[in-house]
Amino acid sequence: MKKPLFKLDEQVYEGVHGELTESILNVKCIRLKPNNMLLTREEKSVITSEKIEDLAVKLLKLAVTELPPDVKNALKRAYEEETSEAGKTQLQAILENVEYAEKTRTPMCQDTGTIIFYIKAGVNAKGLDLFEEALRKATQRATREVPLRPNAVNPFTQKNSGDNTGRFIPFIHWKLVPGETIELTVFPKGGGSENVCTLGMLVPGEGVKGLKRFIVDAVVKAGSKPCPPNIIGVGVGGGADISMKLAKEALLRPLDQPNPDPEIAKLEKEIYEALNTIGIGPMGLGGKITVLGVNIEYAHRHPASYPAAVAFQCWAARRATARINPDGSVEFLTHKPI
Protein backbone atom coordinates (compact mmCIF):
# COMPACT_ATOMS: atom_id res chain seq x y z
CA MET A 1 0.00 0.00 0.00
CA LYS A 2 1.26 3.44 -0.86
CA LYS A 3 1.93 5.83 2.00
CA PRO A 4 -0.26 8.92 2.22
CA LEU A 5 1.32 12.19 1.13
CA PHE A 6 1.15 15.47 3.05
CA LYS A 7 1.78 18.86 1.49
CA LEU A 8 2.81 21.91 3.50
CA ASP A 9 3.63 25.05 1.50
CA GLU A 10 5.56 23.53 -1.42
CA GLN A 11 7.14 20.71 0.58
CA VAL A 12 5.70 17.17 0.31
CA TYR A 13 6.11 14.74 3.24
CA GLU A 14 5.45 11.03 3.06
CA GLY A 15 3.55 8.89 5.55
CA VAL A 16 4.71 9.17 9.14
CA HIS A 17 6.89 12.21 8.29
CA GLY A 18 3.80 14.06 7.26
CA GLU A 19 1.98 13.11 10.46
CA LEU A 20 4.99 14.22 12.54
CA THR A 21 5.20 17.50 10.66
CA GLU A 22 1.55 18.10 11.46
CA SER A 23 1.89 17.32 15.14
CA ILE A 24 5.22 19.11 15.77
CA LEU A 25 4.37 22.26 13.88
CA ASN A 26 0.73 22.01 14.96
CA VAL A 27 -0.48 22.61 11.41
CA LYS A 28 -2.81 20.84 9.03
CA CYS A 29 -1.14 19.61 5.82
CA ILE A 30 -3.02 19.19 2.60
CA ARG A 31 -3.54 15.48 1.88
CA LEU A 32 -2.44 14.37 -1.59
CA LYS A 33 -3.37 11.30 -3.56
CA PRO A 34 -0.38 9.03 -4.26
CA ASN A 35 -0.08 10.59 -7.72
CA ASN A 36 0.34 14.00 -6.10
CA MET A 37 -3.10 15.17 -7.19
CA LEU A 38 -5.10 17.27 -4.76
CA LEU A 39 -7.93 15.45 -3.05
CA THR A 40 -11.50 16.35 -3.96
CA ARG A 41 -13.77 17.75 -1.26
CA GLU A 42 -15.48 14.37 -0.85
CA GLU A 43 -12.17 12.54 -0.37
CA LYS A 44 -10.92 15.02 2.18
CA SER A 45 -13.96 14.30 4.28
CA VAL A 46 -13.47 10.71 5.37
CA ILE A 47 -17.22 10.29 5.73
CA THR A 48 -18.67 9.65 2.29
CA SER A 49 -22.21 9.03 1.08
CA GLU A 50 -21.32 5.46 0.18
CA LYS A 51 -19.90 4.85 3.63
CA ILE A 52 -23.06 6.13 5.33
CA GLU A 53 -25.28 4.15 2.97
CA ASP A 54 -23.36 0.92 3.53
CA LEU A 55 -23.40 1.41 7.27
CA ALA A 56 -27.13 2.13 7.35
CA VAL A 57 -27.92 -0.97 5.25
CA LYS A 58 -25.84 -3.04 7.68
CA LEU A 59 -27.60 -1.51 10.68
CA LEU A 60 -31.03 -2.16 9.13
CA LYS A 61 -30.11 -5.76 8.45
CA LEU A 62 -28.73 -6.21 11.96
CA ALA A 63 -31.77 -4.57 13.54
CA VAL A 64 -34.43 -6.67 11.82
CA THR A 65 -32.59 -9.98 12.18
CA GLU A 66 -30.97 -9.77 15.61
CA LEU A 67 -32.25 -8.32 18.87
CA PRO A 68 -29.86 -6.27 21.02
CA PRO A 69 -28.46 -8.22 24.01
CA ASP A 70 -30.58 -6.45 26.66
CA VAL A 71 -33.81 -7.45 24.88
CA LYS A 72 -32.64 -11.04 24.34
CA ASN A 73 -31.76 -11.33 28.04
CA ALA A 74 -35.10 -9.86 29.08
CA LEU A 75 -36.95 -12.41 26.92
CA LYS A 76 -34.93 -15.28 28.39
CA ARG A 77 -35.67 -14.05 31.89
CA ALA A 78 -39.35 -13.70 30.97
CA TYR A 79 -39.41 -17.34 29.88
CA GLU A 80 -37.89 -18.41 33.21
CA GLU A 81 -40.33 -16.32 35.22
CA GLU A 82 -43.52 -17.04 33.28
CA THR A 83 -45.92 -19.28 35.16
CA SER A 84 -48.78 -19.87 32.69
CA GLU A 85 -48.42 -22.72 30.23
CA ALA A 86 -49.87 -20.79 27.29
CA GLY A 87 -47.54 -17.89 28.11
CA LYS A 88 -44.55 -20.16 28.23
CA THR A 89 -45.31 -21.67 24.80
CA GLN A 90 -45.38 -18.14 23.39
CA LEU A 91 -42.07 -17.13 24.96
CA GLN A 92 -40.47 -20.35 23.83
CA ALA A 93 -41.65 -19.73 20.26
CA ILE A 94 -40.33 -16.16 20.51
CA LEU A 95 -36.90 -17.36 21.69
CA GLU A 96 -36.73 -20.03 18.96
CA ASN A 97 -37.78 -17.46 16.40
CA VAL A 98 -35.15 -14.98 17.57
CA GLU A 99 -32.43 -17.59 17.41
CA TYR A 100 -33.48 -18.83 13.96
CA ALA A 101 -33.76 -15.31 12.54
CA GLU A 102 -30.28 -14.45 13.74
CA LYS A 103 -28.76 -17.67 12.43
CA THR A 104 -30.33 -17.34 8.99
CA ARG A 105 -30.21 -13.52 8.90
CA THR A 106 -33.90 -13.32 8.03
CA PRO A 107 -36.28 -10.72 9.48
CA MET A 108 -37.62 -12.01 12.82
CA CYS A 109 -41.02 -10.46 12.04
CA GLN A 110 -42.61 -9.94 8.64
CA ASP A 111 -43.61 -6.44 9.73
CA THR A 112 -40.22 -4.81 9.38
CA GLY A 113 -41.76 -1.54 10.44
CA THR A 114 -41.61 2.10 9.48
CA ILE A 115 -37.97 3.06 9.12
CA ILE A 116 -36.91 5.68 11.65
CA PHE A 117 -33.37 6.97 12.25
CA TYR A 118 -31.99 8.82 15.26
CA ILE A 119 -28.76 10.76 14.74
CA LYS A 120 -26.66 12.27 17.50
CA ALA A 121 -24.50 14.54 15.44
CA GLY A 122 -21.31 16.12 16.73
CA VAL A 123 -21.47 19.78 15.66
CA ASN A 124 -17.92 19.56 14.34
CA ALA A 125 -18.45 16.29 12.47
CA LYS A 126 -17.98 16.29 8.72
CA GLY A 127 -20.45 14.93 6.21
CA LEU A 128 -23.68 15.69 8.07
CA ASP A 129 -25.15 17.11 4.87
CA LEU A 130 -24.77 13.70 3.23
CA PHE A 131 -26.98 11.77 5.65
CA GLU A 132 -30.47 12.58 4.43
CA GLU A 133 -29.92 11.27 0.92
CA ALA A 134 -27.66 8.40 1.97
CA LEU A 135 -30.22 7.09 4.48
CA ARG A 136 -32.99 7.24 1.89
CA LYS A 137 -30.86 5.22 -0.53
CA ALA A 138 -29.92 2.80 2.24
CA THR A 139 -33.60 2.23 3.06
CA GLN A 140 -34.39 1.47 -0.58
CA ARG A 141 -31.41 -0.87 -0.85
CA ALA A 142 -32.19 -2.66 2.41
CA THR A 143 -35.78 -3.16 1.22
CA ARG A 144 -34.44 -5.12 -1.75
CA GLU A 145 -31.48 -6.82 -0.12
CA VAL A 146 -32.56 -7.82 3.41
CA PRO A 147 -35.49 -7.81 2.36
CA LEU A 148 -37.85 -5.51 4.25
CA ARG A 149 -41.61 -5.48 3.69
CA PRO A 150 -42.63 -2.30 1.85
CA ASN A 151 -44.44 -0.31 4.53
CA ALA A 152 -44.70 3.26 3.24
CA VAL A 153 -48.23 4.12 2.10
CA ASN A 154 -49.51 7.50 0.94
CA PRO A 155 -52.34 8.30 3.39
CA PHE A 156 -54.47 9.97 0.70
CA THR A 157 -54.05 7.72 -2.35
CA GLN A 158 -53.37 4.55 -0.26
CA LYS A 159 -50.58 3.73 -2.72
CA ASN A 160 -47.62 1.82 -1.32
CA SER A 161 -44.35 3.30 -2.59
CA GLY A 162 -42.88 -0.21 -2.65
CA ASP A 163 -39.47 0.76 -1.27
CA ASN A 164 -40.14 2.01 2.28
CA THR A 165 -39.52 5.63 1.33
CA GLY A 166 -41.98 8.46 0.88
CA ARG A 167 -42.76 11.91 2.18
CA PHE A 168 -40.69 12.36 5.39
CA ILE A 169 -40.01 8.60 5.41
CA PRO A 170 -37.52 7.34 6.47
CA PHE A 171 -37.88 9.88 9.27
CA ILE A 172 -34.71 11.29 10.80
CA HIS A 173 -34.55 12.64 14.34
CA TRP A 174 -31.53 14.94 14.62
CA LYS A 175 -29.86 15.91 17.86
CA LEU A 176 -26.82 18.17 17.94
CA VAL A 177 -24.14 17.33 20.50
CA PRO A 178 -20.64 18.71 21.10
CA GLY A 179 -17.74 16.97 19.40
CA GLU A 180 -16.87 15.33 16.11
CA THR A 181 -18.48 11.90 16.31
CA ILE A 182 -21.82 10.82 14.85
CA GLU A 183 -24.04 8.20 16.45
CA LEU A 184 -26.52 6.60 14.06
CA THR A 185 -29.41 4.49 15.35
CA VAL A 186 -31.98 2.66 13.23
CA PHE A 187 -35.33 2.00 14.84
CA PRO A 188 -37.73 0.04 12.60
CA LYS A 189 -41.09 0.39 14.33
CA GLY A 190 -43.83 -2.22 13.83
CA GLY A 191 -47.44 -1.22 13.18
CA GLY A 192 -49.22 -3.43 15.73
CA SER A 193 -47.59 -1.81 18.73
CA GLU A 194 -47.71 1.65 17.16
CA ASN A 195 -51.51 1.44 16.85
CA VAL A 196 -52.01 1.49 20.62
CA CYS A 197 -49.65 4.38 21.45
CA THR A 198 -51.58 7.00 23.34
CA LEU A 199 -51.33 10.60 24.45
CA GLY A 200 -53.18 12.18 27.34
CA MET A 201 -53.38 15.74 28.61
CA LEU A 202 -53.84 14.78 32.26
CA VAL A 203 -55.12 16.81 35.18
CA PRO A 204 -52.11 18.52 36.82
CA GLY A 205 -53.76 18.34 40.25
CA GLU A 206 -53.67 14.54 40.15
CA GLY A 207 -49.91 14.48 39.61
CA VAL A 208 -48.10 11.15 39.52
CA LYS A 209 -51.22 9.28 40.62
CA GLY A 210 -52.99 10.34 37.43
CA LEU A 211 -49.94 9.37 35.40
CA LYS A 212 -49.86 5.87 36.90
CA ARG A 213 -53.56 5.34 36.18
CA PHE A 214 -53.08 6.56 32.61
CA ILE A 215 -50.28 4.02 32.02
CA VAL A 216 -52.19 1.08 33.56
CA ASP A 217 -55.35 1.92 31.57
CA ALA A 218 -53.36 2.20 28.33
CA VAL A 219 -51.83 -1.26 28.88
CA VAL A 220 -55.20 -2.83 29.73
CA LYS A 221 -56.87 -1.21 26.74
CA ALA A 222 -54.09 -2.41 24.43
CA GLY A 223 -54.51 -5.99 25.68
CA SER A 224 -53.13 -8.54 23.21
CA LYS A 225 -52.85 -6.07 20.31
CA PRO A 226 -49.25 -4.79 20.70
CA CYS A 227 -47.75 -8.34 20.78
CA PRO A 228 -46.85 -8.49 24.49
CA PRO A 229 -44.57 -8.76 26.37
CA ASN A 230 -44.02 -5.08 25.61
CA ILE A 231 -41.58 -2.38 26.49
CA ILE A 232 -43.53 0.61 27.76
CA GLY A 233 -42.03 4.00 26.93
CA VAL A 234 -43.45 6.86 28.97
CA GLY A 235 -42.89 10.52 28.19
CA VAL A 236 -44.08 13.20 30.58
CA GLY A 237 -44.21 16.97 30.35
CA GLY A 238 -42.96 19.48 27.82
CA GLY A 239 -46.08 19.57 25.68
CA ALA A 240 -48.12 17.18 23.55
CA ASP A 241 -45.40 16.69 20.93
CA ILE A 242 -42.52 16.64 23.40
CA SER A 243 -44.06 14.01 25.66
CA MET A 244 -44.61 11.59 22.76
CA LYS A 245 -41.11 12.26 21.44
CA LEU A 246 -39.74 11.46 24.91
CA ALA A 247 -41.88 8.32 25.15
CA LYS A 248 -40.42 7.08 21.87
CA GLU A 249 -36.89 7.96 22.93
CA ALA A 250 -37.50 6.03 26.15
CA LEU A 251 -37.96 2.92 23.99
CA LEU A 252 -34.39 3.34 22.74
CA ARG A 253 -32.91 3.08 26.23
CA PRO A 254 -31.61 -0.45 26.92
CA LEU A 255 -33.67 -2.45 29.40
CA ASP A 256 -30.72 -2.89 31.74
CA GLN A 257 -30.29 0.88 32.13
CA PRO A 258 -32.76 2.41 34.57
CA ASN A 259 -33.35 6.16 34.48
CA PRO A 260 -30.25 7.85 36.02
CA ASP A 261 -32.51 9.75 38.42
CA PRO A 262 -33.05 7.29 41.32
CA GLU A 263 -36.57 8.55 42.02
CA ILE A 264 -37.64 7.99 38.40
CA ALA A 265 -35.85 4.63 38.38
CA LYS A 266 -37.89 3.64 41.42
CA LEU A 267 -41.11 4.63 39.68
CA GLU A 268 -40.11 2.64 36.58
CA LYS A 269 -39.57 -0.46 38.72
CA GLU A 270 -42.79 0.05 40.68
CA ILE A 271 -44.93 0.33 37.52
CA TYR A 272 -43.08 -2.57 35.85
CA GLU A 273 -43.78 -4.86 38.79
CA ALA A 274 -47.41 -3.78 39.05
CA LEU A 275 -48.05 -4.31 35.32
CA ASN A 276 -46.70 -7.83 35.60
CA THR A 277 -49.52 -8.72 37.97
CA ILE A 278 -52.27 -7.57 35.60
CA GLY A 279 -52.48 -10.92 33.82
CA ILE A 280 -52.53 -10.10 30.07
CA GLY A 281 -49.46 -12.27 29.60
CA PRO A 282 -47.41 -13.13 26.50
CA MET A 283 -49.51 -12.49 23.36
CA GLY A 284 -52.53 -11.81 25.56
CA LEU A 285 -53.08 -15.50 26.30
CA GLY A 286 -52.87 -14.87 30.05
CA GLY A 287 -49.85 -15.06 32.29
CA LYS A 288 -47.40 -13.15 34.40
CA ILE A 289 -45.15 -11.40 31.92
CA THR A 290 -47.02 -8.57 30.21
CA VAL A 291 -44.10 -6.10 30.06
CA LEU A 292 -40.33 -6.48 29.69
CA GLY A 293 -39.64 -3.05 31.07
CA VAL A 294 -40.95 0.46 31.72
CA ASN A 295 -38.74 3.37 30.68
CA ILE A 296 -39.70 6.90 31.66
CA GLU A 297 -38.32 10.19 30.33
CA TYR A 298 -39.56 13.62 31.34
CA ALA A 299 -39.38 17.33 30.69
CA HIS A 300 -40.66 20.10 32.91
CA ARG A 301 -44.30 20.92 32.29
CA HIS A 302 -46.42 24.04 31.98
CA PRO A 303 -48.21 24.77 35.30
CA ALA A 304 -51.58 24.24 33.63
CA SER A 305 -50.67 21.05 31.69
CA TYR A 306 -49.66 17.51 32.48
CA PRO A 307 -48.95 15.91 29.09
CA ALA A 308 -48.26 12.17 29.23
CA ALA A 309 -47.54 9.76 26.41
CA VAL A 310 -47.36 5.98 26.45
CA ALA A 311 -45.46 4.39 23.55
CA PHE A 312 -45.68 0.63 23.08
CA GLN A 313 -42.89 -1.54 21.73
CA CYS A 314 -43.63 -5.15 20.78
CA TRP A 315 -41.26 -7.86 22.05
CA ALA A 316 -39.38 -7.57 18.73
CA ALA A 317 -37.67 -4.42 20.02
CA ARG A 318 -35.47 -3.83 17.03
CA ARG A 319 -32.76 -1.18 17.12
CA ALA A 320 -29.11 -0.98 16.10
CA THR A 321 -26.55 1.75 16.73
CA ALA A 322 -23.10 2.57 15.39
CA ARG A 323 -20.68 5.41 16.05
CA ILE A 324 -18.75 7.08 13.25
CA ASN A 325 -15.47 8.52 14.49
CA PRO A 326 -13.81 11.63 13.02
CA ASP A 327 -11.25 9.45 11.19
CA GLY A 328 -14.08 7.62 9.47
CA SER A 329 -13.76 4.44 11.50
CA VAL A 330 -16.98 2.81 12.64
CA GLU A 331 -17.84 1.14 15.95
CA PHE A 332 -20.98 -0.96 16.35
CA LEU A 333 -22.49 -0.29 19.77
CA THR A 334 -25.39 -2.76 19.93
CA HIS A 335 -24.33 -5.66 17.71
CA LYS A 336 -21.27 -7.44 16.42
CA PRO A 337 -20.54 -6.03 12.97
CA ILE A 338 -21.49 -8.05 9.87
Binding site: A86, K209, K212, R213, V216, V220, G223, S224, E270, I271, A274, L275, T277, I278, G279, I280, G281, G284, L285, G286
Partner: peptide
Amino acid sequence: IFESVMKQVEANKQKVYEKLGI
Protein backbone atom coordinates in the same frame (compact mmCIF):
# COMPACT_ATOMS: atom_id res chain seq x y z
CA ILE B 1 -59.26 -17.55 26.13
CA PHE B 2 -58.89 -13.91 25.13
CA GLU B 3 -62.33 -13.07 26.51
CA SER B 4 -61.70 -14.86 29.79
CA VAL B 5 -58.22 -13.34 30.13
CA MET B 6 -59.51 -9.82 29.58
CA LYS B 7 -62.32 -10.38 32.12
CA GLN B 8 -59.69 -11.42 34.64
CA VAL B 9 -57.50 -8.44 33.68
CA GLU B 10 -60.36 -6.02 34.37
CA ALA B 11 -60.74 -7.60 37.80
CA ASN B 12 -56.97 -7.48 38.45
CA LYS B 13 -56.87 -3.81 37.47
CA GLN B 14 -58.35 -2.74 40.80
CA LYS B 15 -55.61 -4.58 42.69
CA VAL B 16 -52.96 -2.98 40.48
CA TYR B 17 -54.48 0.45 41.21
CA GLU B 18 -54.23 -0.29 44.93
CA LYS B 19 -50.65 -1.47 44.61
CA LEU B 20 -49.72 1.79 42.90
CA GLY B 21 -51.62 3.90 45.42
CA ILE B 22 -54.09 5.14 42.83
